[in-house]
C-alpha cells in the first residue's frame, strides 16, 4: 500500500483477450482506478501460481489474473489449465489465512472494455477493504 493509502494491485493479463480488453477500456476513455500494475503474459496458462504468491510478498495488496473466456483461448486450452490451478491456489491461500479478497481471477474478452472497468473496480475495492498486507512482505521491497 502506497503512502496515500491506495492499494497496489498486480494484474496478469493474457495478451489476446484481457490485455486487449484493457486497451479497449483505455481507448474508449473509460475511467477506472489507476492502482493496477499490468503485466502482460501470453496466456493465463502461463501464469505460475507462485507469481501470485511472489507478488504478494513483494508489495502487492491484491492480485488479479485475467484471461479469455473458456473456449476462446488463443492456445485452445491454456485458460482451462489456469482455471484449475489458480482455483486450487485460491483455496490454498484462503486456507492459510490470506484474505480471499486479495486474489481474483476473471474472464475479460477483447471487446469487454466495460467489464474490465468493473473487474478493476471490484479488485481495488476488495484490496482496499482487506487493507495493507504487511504481514507477508519480504524485508526489502523494491516498488
Amino acid at each position: 500500500m502506497s503512502a496515500n493509502n491506495e492499494p497496489n494491485i498486480v494484474a496478469f493479463l493474457c495478451n489476446w483477450c484481457s490485455y486487449a480488453g484493457a486497451d479497449l477500456a483505455g481507448t474508449s476513455r473509460m475511467q477506472y482506478p489507476s492502482n493496477i500494475n499490468v503485466i502482460r503474459v501470453m496466456c493465463t496458462g502461463r501464469v505460475n501460481p507462485l507469481y501470485v504468491v511472489n507478488a504478494l510478498q513483494q508489495g502487492a495488496d491484491g492480485v488479479l489474473v485475467s484471461g479469455c473466456h473458456p473456449g476462446d483461448c488463443h492456445y485452445m486450452e491454456g485458460n482451462y489449465f489456469a482455471r484449475r490451478r489458480l482455483g486450487m491456489l485460491k483455496d490454498l491461500l484462503e486456507y492459510v489465512g490470506v484474505d480471499p479478497r486479495r486474489f481474483h481471477m476473471s474472464w475479460v474478452s477483447a471487446s469487454e472494455g466495460h467489464k474490465w472497468k468493473e473487474v478493476v473496480e471490484k479488485t481495488v475495492e476488495d484490496a482496499r477493504e482487506a487493507g495493507p498486507f504487511e504481514g507477508f512482505r519480504r524485508r526489502q521491497i523494491d516498488w
Binding site: 507462485l50 504468491v53 486450487m88 490454498l92
Partner: peptide, 25 residues
C-alpha cells in the same frame, strides 16, 4: 529465486505454500 533462503515469516509461508501447491492433486 522463487523463494529466498532466509528463514522468516514471509519466506517460510511462501515455501510452505509452494510445497503444498506442488503436491496438490
Amino acid at each position: 529465486s522463487w523463494v529466498f533462503r532466509s528463514v522468516n515469516f514471509s519466506e517460510n509461508t511462501a515455501f510452505n505454500i509452494a510445497r503444498a501447491f506442488h503436491l496438490a492433486g
